[in-house]
Write a protein that binds this DNA or RNA. Sequence first.
DNA 1: TTTATATATCGCCATATATCGATTTATGGA
DNA 2: TCCATAAATCGATATATGGCGATATATAAA
Lengths: 114, 114
Amino acid sequence: MRDFIKIMKALSDQNRVVILKLLQQRELCVCELRELLGLAQSTVSKHLKILEGARLIDYSKDGQWVNYRLADSEDNPYAAALLENLKQWLDNDQRVAEAASRLPFVDRSTLCGR
Amino acid sequence: MRDFIKIMKALSDQNRVVILKLLQQRELCVCELRELLGLAQSTVSKHLKILEGARLIDYSKDGQWVNYRLADSEDNPYAAALLENLKQWLDNDQRVAEAASRLPFVDRSTLCGR
DNA sequence: TTTATATATCGCCATATATCGATTTATGGA
DNA sequence: TCCATAAATCGATATATGGCGATATATAAA
């Protein structure tokens, strides 16, 4: 039950759902997500922590960046089912579509560093 | 998105999930749920209102009782998917199993007035 | 019509959550 | 070694949520 509730809570916030929808397209670092969501960096980090705690996303470090991606949730039926469902859902949502449309133009090297 | 979030929020509480699992067995009135959950009547009503707002449950009046049941969510893909998933999930959860085991012995006519 | 009872609503409180700015930590480059 | 920068953590605040008891509403029975 605890795992299930954790996933439901993680999915109970619009910004976190948008993050998952964006990660369906490609891996993203925190600064790219910050730009796409228009939130403070600390807020994005906190959201990512919650998604990670629910085992909906994973990350790997790439130098100074941390790349986040959808979790490979073989051993996690709730996460697997919801992530699968989410692939079909919400593509036409205003906020998702708006952020996704800007995704191709977001690039960490122009955004962050020099 | 709003509908989706509403469903996720509705499913983000253990007691509400237990209610849905119990309603998989049969229709239940508020006083039966109050007994099975061990919560105040007003609290149960509030939970039911939230589940109803997410269109996960429906009700019909039967005299002084109000019978709640799982929603017939044909036109509601999010609710349909989650309710379907929930049928497979959480049967072995401690709280769900405990409440479900008492379900056969709960009867509105003994519970509520005589 | 009065009374009893099942349910809904209201008001309150304690806790949880979303957000931000400031600070800390970690990594890469000078 | 020192500095710049990406990300994490901390601290504060405003809002949301879950719980209860008290009250209001609706229905059935007397």
